[in-house]
Design a protein around this nucleic acid. Structure first.
Lengths: 111, 111
DNA sequence: TTGTCATATCAAGAACCATTGATATATTGA
DNA sequence: TCAATATATCAATGGTTCTTGATATGACAA
């Protein structure tokens, strides 16, 4: 949806940033950069308890950052490309404006 | 510093994302996009308790996202442009690789 | 069918984070 | 000086998040 209230945008952005605010989750994303991996592979690479891995994958999935696919006994996780577009948009929305970079305010406030 | 271990990078990225993972802080950044503002202005715009505002400004400052400048009775906060460059880099490092976007793995794992 | 493996979920506790109200500090104007 | 204003910090509390170990579920192989 291309139209969203500012509040909804902010809410979504905070959710995305929260999903990325943990080192374990960033490590997982790194492992998925080149393509999908099954949980067992991630577990080997990460060396973390299974339930812990499962917890973080769920956080990423709930935030829409990854998606999963079941195949027989295994579940494969992959990055969801759209989320990264959203993320780039969110960052772009936060960046100082050209004006802010140029101007150095000198007038006082509150008077 | 241009050279950093992956772990340090990840740590820094998680810190930046954490600073941005709260709606109040995102709102503050929005208020600073066009240039610096004194705390009193931010307080009016935000309508939040003073200590709460101060708390969030500190989180942003500790993460390097904003900087402050004292002038007489007032303190002015502004976005720190460098942080947004770092943020863009961090996001770029997370994005699915070209390979990931092209390839659809079909082989199984763990066998 | 039974056992085993891959994964998810749950419950309890620890660690962390945000909010509030109270107090401290610094600056200025009277 | 004194009082008022702007801001920061602190302590207490409640809420959320993370970790761990235990248990559940579902798929497959023997």
């Amino acid at each position: 949806m291309a139209t969203m209230t500012r509040a909804a945008d902010t809410h979504r952005a905070a959710g995305l940033f929260h999903a990325l605010s943990d080192e374990t989750r960033l490590a997982l994303i790194g492992m998925l950069r080149d393509g999908e991996r099954c949980v067992c592979e991630l577990q080997d690479s990460l060396g973390a308890a299974q339930s812990r891995l499962s917890f973080h994958l769920k956080v990423l999935k709930d935030a829409g950052v990854v998606n999963d696919r079941k195949e027989g006994r295994w579940v494969y996780y992959a990055l969801t490309p759209d989320a990264f577009g959203e993320l780039e948009d969110a960052v772009a929305e936060l960046k100082p404006s050209r004006r802010a970079l140029a101007v150095r305010r000198t007038s006082g406030c509150c008077d």
